[in-house]
Design a protein around this nucleic acid. Structure first.
Lengths: 241, 241
DNA sequence: GGCGATTTGGGAAAACTTTCACACGGGCGT
DNA sequence: ACGCCCGTGTGAAAGTTTTCCCAAATCGCC
């Protein structure tokens, strides 16, 4: 077992790891580490809110080599992760829906600083079409297919009302989009070759609400309320996937 | 083993299940099922985009009883899930940050229809404070502690710039908030008794970008491009956690 | 009133994810 | 040059989540 380690690329990266890589990259490019030459897995893991063994395992899927006894080179690790995530050059995305949320997303600076360019902002409302908002001209959703083709867009963000999301999604897929980030509170059906991520804002709150309920119940059954608030040894944290 | 099934409550519900319960509830209260008397696990699972065995297992944690040979009673299942999630009565949440995203969230109808009430919209910008946006008066962030106490707020949404998110978070926790939904692209540190969920919009795109890369690589190595787009047997789907 | 079609509930296996623990490699001080 | 210390990389164990599969329960029909 020595001639089979030259794979490096094409190796399977677990889904859970991919999600964390984005966080690592954000932390690495943040002010705290940008200046430094190297980081240890301990430091980076703590800044990212994960266990250091997990961070090392995650990075090991990249084939990225740290230096034993030293750590990882900040800039080359960042480059490595960027490459794996495919964000070395800005990718064009279509933002569909210029309502509340769509406009907020159009104005979100984080997209452009982290590898994406909003190539088009589309809407169905005649009152919006043609208007210039946040530097984007709102285009007619009727032009969706043309825009996708012209800009070579592979990723679409859906921020439309729930009722039309599936129809828009179908059109986007038909036009050639192969990844969709959906903010509409509906479960979209897409063909197997299309990747889909749902962000459901109310659902996030409901999950927190569940835990609130739990905490309330625990307090009641635990009887005395003392010492329940006592267990925060300095600065523990807990991020939930 | 027969006298130990009276637990029903206080049973552990896996984290992954909780996240899906919110989806099931949304689907159940949607137009497709609201009218109907019962649903089978197959139907509901398909509408929610999950495997039916998984749905049944999820529901089994609720102690919720379906009827064999029939399915689940739509309205009582909805009530059951609402109760478990703690959304039977609207909960008050504080929305911190009246920028781009904060304002969009303030205008998001889904919160109020799904169990939450924005009890306060706070910001630090003197130009915003006092203004009335989307029916909310923007309050001074200096009043955070007072608002949390007065309204009995347990859940806060952070939609501030990244630089101030940790400081705001600390203050909210100190004031008594025990659940935080964070949209700022930083990893927040919170004491162990506080629940935290992160929503990182750019990270979502980066995850999709990763898969785009993969698909592109697969196409190249697979050589011929035919039959790659052929495998969507009718309407398969795939939601990714 | 019994029989067959249907669909839940849950045990057991499989798959996936995280944590543990430690051997190994590399730099640094002397 | 040598050895010590530090921190990576990774097997193996532990934990979590999903899937498989079938016995048991219920309804509707004859």
């Amino acid at each position: 077992m020595s001639a089979e380690r030259q794979v490096l690329e094409g190796q399977r990266v677990p889904e859970a790891t991919v999600a964390r890589l984005a966080t690592y990259l954000r932390v690495l490019t943040g002010a705290d580490f940008h200046e430094r030459g190297t980081v240890s897995s301990e430091e980076l893991a703590s800044a990212a809110g994960v266990n250091s063994a997990l961070l090392r395992k995650d990075l090991s899927y990249l084939g990225s080599y740290g230096i034993r006894g030293v750590g990882y080179d900040v800039s080359s690790l960042g480059a490595q992760i960027s490459r794996i995530l495919g964000v070395t050059v800005n990718q064009s995305v279509a933002l569909i829906g210029a309502g509340n949320l769509g406009l907020a997303l159009a104005g979100y600076a984080g997209f452009s600083t982290r590898g994406f360019r909003i190539a088009a902002l589309l809407d169905a409302d005649p009152a919006m079409i043609g208007r210039d908002v946040r530097g984007f001209e709102v285009r007619d959703i009727a032009d969706l297919e043309a825009v996708v083709a012209a800009e070579g867009i592979a990723i679409a963000i859906i921020a439309t009302p729930a009722e039309v999301a599936q129809a828009i999604c179908d059109r986007a897929v038909e036009a050639g989009v192969t990844s969709i980030l959906n903010f509409a509170p509906v479960v979209l059906a897409v063909p197997a070759h299309v990747d889909l991520r749902q962000v459901d804002l109310a659902a996030e709150l409901q999950i927190l609400s569940f835990h609130e309920n739990r905490k309330a119940a625990a307090l009641l059954s635990a009887g005395n309320s003392a010492d329940v608030l006592e267990d925060d040894t300095s600065a523990r944290w807990r991020a939930e996937a």
